[in-house]
Design a protein around this nucleic acid. Sequence first.
DNA 1: TACTACGTTTAGTAAATACTAAACGTAGTA
DNA 2: TACTACGTTTAGTATTTACTAAACGTAGTA
Lengths: 176, 176
Amino acid sequence: MTTDTQTLKQEFIEGLSGISAFWGFPKGMGALFAVLYLSPDPLPLDELVEQSGLTKGAVSTNVRALARIGLVHRSTRLGDRKDYYEAETNFYKSVRSILKERQNTEFDRAVASVKETLSKLEAGAGSSDPAEQAFLLERVRALQSFFDALDSLFSAISRLDSLGFGTIQTVLNILK
Amino acid sequence: MTTDTQTLKQEFIEGLSGISAFWGFPKGMGALFAVLYLSPDPLPLDELVEQSGLTKGAVSTNVRALARIGLVHRSTRLGDRKDYYEAETNFYKSVRSILKERQNTEFDRAVASVKETLSKLEAGAGSSDPAEQAFLLERVRALQSFFDALDSLFSAISRLDSLGFGTIQTVLNILK
DNA sequence: TACTACGTTTAGTAAATACTAAACGTAGTA
DNA sequence: TACTACGTTTAGTATTTACTAAACGTAGTA
């Protein structure tokens, strides 16, 4: 006895909901993306309400958030007042826009504050004891360069689609 | 007028708190790591209470969580009942253990569920309409291969320290 | 044995968050 | 103009989470 399409979809939706929650997004966003991703055609809001089990308000909010980060696209049809949504299928593109989105939030502010600490230290601030000063400088520098390395890698990820999978394989082989 | 050491430390602590929160960890964890990271010597729990402003209970919980993911290490001294903590300074090592830790949580279960959906589809489940079946298969496959690529990259990150920065530069040049 | 100095656990709390239900705004239509 | 079919916004709610305060457990010490 094999699983039917409906059940299969439901499991997939729950899976993406969990992944969404894990990355700090509302579960609803994952669910809505899943619904759209499994649909060959763009879907209107009321269809999303039906298939996701969320209310109109929740769908409206979440689908708009998805559009902001580029994971779904909104479209309209002539002589039809409804909005239609469809899933973006180029994930690398989405990652890029998600990272870009997040760059202007608290994360960037926090990372910037570490960088600022470093600048102040390099400018001679905090000099109570030379040994302590040197120690602090070394530690904060090390952290900063780690952040820089991470940053390079993340931006590399967002460029992966234009590079193609051949390049990815090459890179992974080097790293192996 | 330059900033004094105390203020500088405080700013750094707040910065790491923010970064911690951003990545889904308690702010307290970031703060405690910051305190330890800026200390040349291992610190006992009561010192952490004092420097972080958290209560004993919170410090106990958070510092244990930090130890679990390998960002701090606990040690003891002979004839001294206190526990001492110090920061791990090899971040790549920490990333590796954080990822390893997370692997057994909800994230992995969620990703696994997508993989399971794919297996079922490949085994012929859900076959209502051949065209729909092909469509679903193609989409879920694409998502799965995206996850696989991400996975490769993350595990690459955790191997970066053993490779050294020379290799990292090489890789980033290829990706550029 | 009682005492002391620790770390841990628990009960309760405050704040953030994502949702529901329903009111609202608005653009096309009779 | 009133009506209808949409999407959006708001008020309220349930849940989660990270914290505090305090009780608790425990191993060394007098």
